[in-house]
């Protein structure tokens, strides 16, 4: 049995333990931040920031500093650039996102190629959770603590600025500051997810579990819990398939998350396609019988 040998391997190999712990943490963090990303309608922004991290990662390797600083710097710089262009011209927000993030990504690819050092472009782009070093595991843990604490402390403010920014402004809440705070958390989350799912697929970890949860509840805190639950489930099952069949971890994790999404899409009690059509049919037949 594959499953039994997988459990044996977990007990035996520390690299697999680290892989599981890291990906479970990534599942939680992405699940939580993802809820705010999709509710604010900035999924594309999530994709943009995750790509914009690349030049920062490259420069950090170049100077031998923690990739964290470089990544947060270029991620945030891109977020500010996107806002600046769309606010000061007729260019629409999604166009501005397209311009800025592809530029940052292109720059990143060139920088990484020039360096040709320890940084493996393939692993940064697609993730390789089975090779996660202890230091990165701890970094993911620290990012997780920061993200979860921030969301916990500012839950009220995040809720009202996401749901009704106008009312938030009349309360005297700084909408812009909170937006950029979220962008910082998003960049940190992306960096933490580099090893697990990689830059290209991190957006899926951000939005797919959150979107799945969105179909299942009418309460924000329940959505956050469910979303991180789906993130964790995807991570564990994804790592299992990645290990057992020697597949890229990012891809397996994202596909599991997608399968969960479609289960909710068809079978969600309130929003699911299946129950909706059954309810509609029942209603019609009742009308016919009367």
């Amino acid at each position: 049995m594959n499953l039994i040998s997988f459990f044996d391997a977990i007990i035996q190999y520390s690299f697999l333990q680290k892989a599981l712990v890291t990906s479970v943490m990534v599942g939680i963090i992405c699940g939580v931040i993802g809820c705010f990303i999709i509710l604010r309608g900035i999924s594309l922004m999530g994709d943009a920031i995750s790509h914009a991290v690349l030049p920062g990662v490259a420069v950090s390797y170049m100077f031998g500093i923690n990739i964290f600083y470089g990544a947060v710097f270029t991620g945030l710089l891109t977020a500010i650039g996107i806002g600046y262009i769309s606010q000061n011209s007729r260019i629409k927000h999604d166009t501005s996102i397209g311009i800025m993030f592809s530029a940052a990504f292109a720059l990143g690819i060139i920088l990484i190629t020039i360096m040709q050092s320890s940084a493996d472009l393939y692993h940064i782009l697609f993730g390789n959770v089975l090779a996660v070093p202890v230091a990165e595991m701890w970094m993911t843990f620290i990012v997780g603590v920061i993200v979860l604490t921030t969301v916990f402390l500012f839950y009220k403010e995040l809720l009202v600025t996401t749901f009704d920014p106008t009312i938030a402004a009349t309360f005297g809440l700084p909408n812009k500051l909170i937006h950029y705070m979220l962008m910082i958390l998003l960049t940190m989350t992306t960096v933490a997810s580099l090893q697990t799912v990689g830059i290209i697929l991190v957006v899926a970890m951000l939005i797919t579990p959150a979107a799945t949860a969105y179909l299942l509840t009418n309460k924000l805190w329940v959505m956050i819990m469910l979303s991180s639950g789906f993130g964790v489930t995807s991570s564990i099952v994804g790592v299992y398939y990645s290990y057992t069949y020697n597949l890229s971890s990012g891809s397996t994790i994202v596909l599991v998350a997608t399968i969960l999404f479609f289960i909710a899409f068809f079978f969600s009690p309130k929003q699911g396609i299946l129950w909706k059509s059954i309810r509609a049919r029942k209603h019609r037949s009742q009308l016919a019988n009367n």
Binding site: G41, T162, F163, D164, I167, T170, N218, L220, M223
Partner: peptide, 14 residues
């Protein structure tokens, strides 16, 4: 303040 009704995301989980 009670804003115009259209200003809001009506699908928000609340």
């Amino acid at each position: 303040y009670v804003p115009q009704r259209s200003d809001i995301d009506w699908d928000f989980p609340i």
